[in-house]
Design a protein around this nucleic acid. Structure first.
Ligand SMILES: [Zn+2]
Ligand SMILES: [Zn+2]
Ligand SMILES: [Zn+2]
Ligand SMILES: [Zn+2]
Lengths: 154, 154
DNA sequence: AAATGAAATGATATGTTGTAACGTGGTACC
DNA sequence: GGTACCACGTTACAACATATCATTTCATTT
C-alpha cells in the first residue's frame, strides 16, 4: 500500500459538523452553540479563513457582534483537538475534513485564487520529522505547506 | 552520496556580509548603506528577527528612526534574491548562511528558546514538490518548518 | 554644471492579525 | 445560598504588514 495506510472518508456539510462534535465531546470538551456556529462558518470556506473573517460571519449569523478574541479562543481549541488546522503561511484556518484522524497535514495554497487543498502523505511528513530528529531536534509539529498555483489557475 | 549533493561552507560575520553583497550586486541590485546595515543587523540574530526588531536596531545604529516599511522593502528584496528567508510560522526573517546557493530550506524552530536552525535536505524538499505536483498543483515555494524544542532546551 | 529620470528611502497613515486582563452569566456540587 | 468552574463578553492594546505619496540620491545626458 502507498503512503496512506488507513482508510477514511472526508466528511462534508452536516456530516462534518457532526463528526467534529463527536470528536470534541469525546475529548471531554463541550459542544456549545458558539462552537457549533464557528465551526459551521469555518467549514463553509474553501480557502483558509482568518479569525476576523469568521468573526464577521458569525456576528452576522447571530445578529450580535462576536469579538475576534472569542473566535481565537475557539479556533485554538479546535486546533488543539484536531478539528481545524492553522495554515501558517496564510495566518488563517481550515476545517479539518477528518477530525478524529491524526495527521501531519500538507497544504497546497494557491497564490492566485487563495484556495487551499489538503493532502496527506504520512511517509513524507515522517521523513520531515526524521530529518529534524537527526539534527538533534525534538519535532513536535511539522509545518509543510506549498505555495504555488492550483490546476484551475494555471 | 547523501541528500546534499554539493559542497559549500556557511559564511559568518563579515565573510557573510561580503557574500551577500556579491550575490546582490551580481543580481544587478545595489548594495547601499541601508541594505548593508539591515543585513548586518539581521545576521547578528540567531533566531528569526521581525521587521520591527530590525527597524529598532538599525534605528539605534544610525541614530535616526528607520521605519518598518523601509525594512520590509529591503527584506523583500533580500528574500527575492536569496539573501534571507522568511520563517512563516514565526512572522520573521533569517539571514541566509549561503547566499548564491539555492535551496528549499528547512527550518527547525524551538518553541522554548525561539532559536532557529536551518537544515538542507534536497531529496526531502524535492519529494514535497513532487507530492504537490502529483496533486495537480504547480509548486513554487515549499514551506517546510518544524516546531518543537531544540537539543539545548530538552 | 545643469537638467533629467530612475531607484532608493522617508514619512505618514491605515489595515490586519493576535493577546492580555478582567468582568459576567450559567451550571454543578455541596 | 455559597462556591468553584467554565464559557463567553468587553475593552484595550500589541505586533505584523501594506498603501500612498514625498523626498533624496545618484547616474546619465546635455
Ligand atoms: Zn487520513
Ligand atoms: Zn488557484
Ligand atoms: Zn547548500
Ligand atoms: Zn531551544
Amino acid at each position: 500500500m502507498a503512503t496512506h495506510a488507513h482508510h477514511h472518508h472526508e466528511h462534508h456539510g452536516h456530516d462534518l459538523a457532526d463528526a467534529a462534535q463527536k470528536a470534541l465531546t469525546a475529548a471531554g470538551e463541550q459542544w456549545t452553540d458558539m462552537r457549533a456556529d464557528i465551526f459551521s462558518v469555518l467549514a463553509t470556506f474553501d480557502k483558509p479563513a482568518s479569525a476576523y473573517d469568521i468573526a464577521d460571519l458569525v456576528s452576522q449569523k447571530r445578529g450580535k457582534r462576536v469579538a475576534p478574541n472569542s473566535v481565537y479562543r475557539i479556533l485554538d481549541l479546535f486546533v488543539a483537538n484536531n478539528l481545524a488546522s492553522r495554515v501558517e503561511s496564510a495566518n488563517a484556518y481550515l476545517a479539518n475534513a477528518h477530525p478524529g484522524c491524526l495527521h501531519d497535514c500538507i497544504f497546497l495554497i494557491c497564490d492566485s485564487c487563495g484556495s487551499a487543498t489538503h493532502i496527506d502523505d504520512d511517509s513524507l511528513t515522517r521523513n520531515v520529522r526524521k530529518a529534524a530528529e537527526a539534527a538533534g531536534f525534538n519535532a513536535v509539529r511539522p509545518v509543510v505547506e506549498v505555495r504555488g498555483t492550483c490546476a484551475d489557475c494555471d
